[in-house]
Amino acid sequence: MLDQPLLQVRGLKKTFPIDGGRRLVAVDGVDLEIKAGETLALVGESGSGKSTVARCIVRLVEPTGGDVVIGGDSILGLQPSRLVGVYRRIQMVFQDPNASLNPRMSVRQVLEEPLHLHLYLLRSERDARVRELIEMVGLTPAHLDRYPHELSGGQRQRVGIARAIAVSPEIVILDEPTSSLDVSIRGQILDLLLELQERLHLAYLFITHDLQVVQHVAHRVAVMYLGGIVETGPTKELFADPRHPYTRALLSAAPVARWGVKRTRTRLSGEISSAIDPPDACRLAGRCPFARPSCSDARPPLTDIGGGRAVACPVVIERIPT
């Protein structure tokens, strides 16, 4: 039981109906597992479906299929009224703190709301908790009576984090939490997240396209491309030796802020293909430098290659010496 993952996502699928009876397949059979206290980074480019995965897990959008299990309980079958209990265990921080904080609520009101919803606290206990939260995220009680527009972008994101940890969840989903921030602020917010993780033993599902951030904070990585996971593994090993052609292209495209670093790029041709009614084939087949005819026959499954790693590409798996 100890090794039981805290969050399990199995065969998650989300399609959106669009005009003409066609379907946009945003998420197509995603499996994920996160243990207590662990950070899993979900990386991918725009349109890969990573944010839709996050929103499906907390049922901000209803999945079309699959299952999400938190601490042994499946949450997809729950009546919406029963979700309140789930949200004590799993919370979310959004990319844009301008959009995710109500401009008409003071910081104090923002932080009190989840306490009202989930915990039955005395007034004095609630006040004490709000003060504790604001200090945990590196702000001061003086910030409590301010409104979002009176705060900087970094301070607003700190408030978003304080709101997420208010009810002591076990898992926090971070959806691009540093993408709208300047680099100097990015580092501070990441340090705060690492500190809170250690102090509160939080598990993070960290959604980002920033590969530097991934290397800095994640224990494990899952790489998404067009609705599916193409590669997953421990961060260090995956960055040192990416296997899937898409992972290689992605990692080799990221510029490095150091003098004299030379990259050898794995190049894909063209741009990301359409997610509307995709064929049952490898989603990268049309762009991949290693593609062969069989890649268009069926979608390759994510296959275990040992060392906690898995790759959805039979072409590269065949080349791995055994």
Binding site: E45, S46, H209, L211, A249, L250, A253, A254, P255, R265, L268, E271, I272
Partner: peptide, 10 residues
């Protein structure tokens, strides 16, 4: 822009 596209554009 996405990082793979960014690299191509640069």
């Amino acid at each position: 822009l996405d990082v793979t596209i960014q690299s191509d554009i640069m």
